[in-house]
Design a protein around this nucleic acid. Sequence first.
DNA 1: TGCGATCATATCGCGCGCGATTTATATCGA
DNA 2: TCGATATAAATCGCGCGCGATATGATCGCA
Lengths: 135, 135
Amino acid sequence: MLCFALYSANHAMTRLYRPLLQPLGLTYPQYLVLVALWSEDERRVGALGEELGLDTNTLTPLLKRMAEAGLVTRGRSAADERVVTVRLTDKGRALEAEAERITTCVFEATGLSVEELADLRDRIARLNTEIAEHL
Amino acid sequence: MLCFALYSANHAMTRLYRPLLQPLGLTYPQYLVLVALWSEDERRVGALGEELGLDTNTLTPLLKRMAEAGLVTRGRSAADERVVTVRLTDKGRALEAEAERITTCVFEATGLSVEELADLRDRIARLNTEIAEHL
DNA sequence: TGCGATCATATCGCGCGCGATTTATATCGA
DNA sequence: TCGATATAAATCGCGCGCGATATGATCGCA
């Protein structure tokens, strides 16, 4: 069962990240939002959702919690009042340095070489897009 | 990011299963419980949890919903009153026939050959056990 | 026998994921 | 210009995943 392997491995991955993220006060999905913002700041909610595969029903409360934690700010666009723009705070930006240590821990826990990891990532990503097309 | 690929692919997989399981009144985790019971019926809650990587805080309410839906029965063991044994009902057993059709749909959606799929499954399963050891 | 430790399951609270609906703003056409 | 339509985000309800705690049954050992 490929689906069960994915299900289990995903859970194992979040369990691996949990104790690493806990000292930073982050959940795993919140961490993914930060990663997205580190690569490109000042995103609208919809753009974040498109990248993460989440809708506003998930993102809105999640981003509110991150805003309360002082990691991001949420502000209506002046040009289009419908749009909410999410921006990193200094605190949110500063966490990128910590993240590198986490990435190292996770990489070591996989027991894979850089090449194996990249190959597996690409295969899974291809599976992902293939399934998304059949959705 | 291997972790994000896993996260996304897992979500894509559950989205793929959702419309297939909906007519049967099943959620994806409930389907996994059925799969486990189809391979071996009359399991205690803890044994199911070990196979699925879930604890009773998740399984107990899930199994109660499945019992309400008439898919399984839950009964205390006479020998050891602490143990709850989960058994398939006729209705739960009958769904195995439907499941074969679902498996076919999912397989086709992956766009993979049988060999590729088995290989990818094994790689992900190995990653899973490797991470579990580092937990 | 009785009492503390252990074990199996259950309960509680919170964050996430999502289908369905709502609110508010923007856009387009008669 | 105005009204229908579209768009962005928010809200609601429910199921899942899990840390923490509780309840109740069994076991071990003096």
